[in-house]
C-alpha cells in the first residue's frame, strides 16, 4: 500500500505579512490570526487564490496581516464586496472578516442577505460585544445594562444573538468558537471552508481594553467545563468536568433543559444526540445562556444546498445553450429593423 503524505508547501509563517500588527497587546484577535494562518497552511490553501475582505473596526484590519489578497472596505459592507468578488470569480476562496458592530449594526442588512443567498464564502464574526476602534461604546451585541461612554446609565437595548440571527436569515452553516480555543477554532475554520455556501462562524473574542473578561462567565478556566458544551455531530450532548451533565428535551415542553445523569431518574439514554442537520435543535442551542444553560460551541447547524454561484452558473449555461455565439452584431439587430438605401 502506498502511503501518500500530503505535501504542504506553505507554513503558517508564509501566510503572515511584513506589516506590523497594530492590535492592542493581549487582544483576542492575535489568537484568531494565528489560528487562521495555521489553518490555511493545514488545508493547503493557495495564497493567490485566497481573499480576505473586511469592513471597518478592529477586526477589519485582519486582511493587512494575511499574505493573501485582501480588501479593507467600508463599514458593514464586506459581505456585499465579497458577493461581488465571488460573482466575478467563483473560484476564489473568500473570507469575510467582521465584528459585532460591523456585521450586526451598520451591516445587518448585508449579513442577512449574504446568508439568505447562500453565497459560497466564509463570514467570521469577531464578537467582543463592544465597539473597540471608536473607544468603547456599547454594540448591538452588548448585554442590557452595559455601561459605556455613550451609555453612562447602562444600555437599555436587548442584545442580538448572532447565531440565532444567522439561522433566522437562512444560514446553512452556523458555528461558534472562542479566541483562546486554538485547536477548536482551527477546526471550525476548516469546517467552514469545506462547506459549500455561506458559512457563518461566531468567535467570542475578548477585548482586553474596553470589555475585558466579558465572556468569563463561560470561558474562565475554573468554570468552562460546566458553562459550555462542545457540540459534535452524532454524539450525545454531554458536558461538565465529570461528563455527567447533559441536555434533554424537558418532558411536556418544547425546550431544552440541562440535567445531571444519575439524578432525578435521568439516564444517559435520555440525553439528546447532536444532529447538526436539525435546524430546530440548532435554534434552541443558539439561545442557551449561562447561568442556567451552557453556551453551545462547535457546529450548531450544517445543511448544505447549492450556492448562489451554482445557480448563476446554471443560468449562464442555459442562456448560452439557448443562444450560442454571443455575437454582439446580432444582439443589436434583434427585433424590427429596416434598411434605408441611398
Amino acid at each position: 500500500m502506498n502511503i501518500v503524505t500530503p505535501v504542504n508547501e506553505l507554513t503558517p509563517k508564509d501566510f503572515a505579512t511584513d506589516q506590523e500588527v497594530r492590535w492592542c497587546p493581549g487582544c483576542g484577535d492575535y489568537a484568531i490570526l494565528k489560528a487562521m494562518q495555521r489553518t490555511l497552511a493545514d488545508i493547503g490553501a493557495k495564497r493567490e487564490n485566497t481573499v480576505f475582505v473586511s469592513g471597518i473596526g478592529c477586526a477589519a484590519r485582519f486582511p493587512y496581516y494575511m499574505a493573501t489578497y485582501g480588501f479593507h472596505t467600508i463599514h458593514g459592507r464586506a459581505p456585499a464586496f465579497g458577493t461581488g468578488i465571488k460573482l466575478a470569480n467563483p473560484d476564489l476562496d473568500v473570507w469575510v472578516v467582521t465584528g459585532d458592530g460591523d456585521a450586526l449594526s451598520i451591516g445587518g442588512n448585508h449579513l442577512l442577505h449574504v446568508l439568505r443567498r447562500n453565497v459560497n464564502l466564509q463570514v467570521l464574526l469577531f464578537n467582543n460585544e463592544i465597539y473597540g476602534l471608536t473607544k468603547g461604546q456599547y454594540s448591538p451585541a452588548s448585554r442590557a445594562g452595559t455601561r459605556s461612554p455613550s451609555t453612562p446609565w447602562g444600555s437599555i437595548e436587548n442584545p442580538v444573538s448572532a447565531a440565532a440571527l444567522a439561522l433566522g436569515a437562512g444560514g446553512r452553516f452556523v458555528a461558534r468558537s472562542v479566541d483562546t480555543m486554538q485547536k477548536h477554532l482551527g477546526e471550525m475554520f476548516k469546517r467552514a471552508h469545506d462547506h459549500n455556501g455561506t458559512s457563518f462562524v461566531e468567535i467570542f473574542q475578548n477585548c482586553i481594553v474596553f470589555n475585558n473578561d466579558i465572556f468569563a462567565d463561560f470561558t474562565a478556566k475554573d468554570i468552562a467545563d460546566e458553562a459550555q458544551i462542545i457540540l459534535e455531530h452524532g454524539q450525545p450532548l454531554i458536558f461538565g468536568k465529570e461528563r455527567t451533565r447533559g441536555l434533554r428535551v424537558r418532558p411536556g415542553f418544547f425546550e431544552l433543559e440541562a440535567v445531571t445523569i444519575g439524578e432525578d431518574g435521568v439516564e444517559e439514554k435520555d440525553i439528546l444526540v447532536h444532529d447538526e442537520t436539525n435546524r430546530a435543535l440548532a435554534g434552541m442551542l443558539a439561545l442557551m445562556e449561562p447561568p442556567t444553560m451552557p453556551v453551545a460551541l462547535g457546529v450548531l447547524y450544517c445543511y448544505p444546498t447549492p450556492s448562489y454561484e451554482d445557480g448563476v452558473k446554471d443560468h449562464f449555461d442555459e442562456a448560452k445553450a439557448h443562444n450560442p455565439g454571443g455575437d454582439i452584431n446580432k444582439l443589436l439587430r434583434r427585433g424590427h429593423t429596416w434598411t434605408v438605401t441611398g
Binding site: 481573499v51 475582505v53 480588501f71 472596505t73 467600508i74 459592507r77 456585499a80 464586496f81 465579497g82 458577493t83 461581488g84 468578488i85 465571488k86 460573482l87 466575478a88 470569480n89 476564489l92 442588512n109 448585508h110 442577505h113
Partner: peptide, 14 residues
C-alpha cells in the same frame, strides 16, 4: 450593496 458588489466584481477582474 449594489455598488459594493460592483466594486467587488471590479476588484476581482470583472
Amino acid at each position: 450593496a449594489a455598488i459594493c458588489s460592483a466594486i467587488g466584481a471590479s476588484y476581482a477582474g470583472s
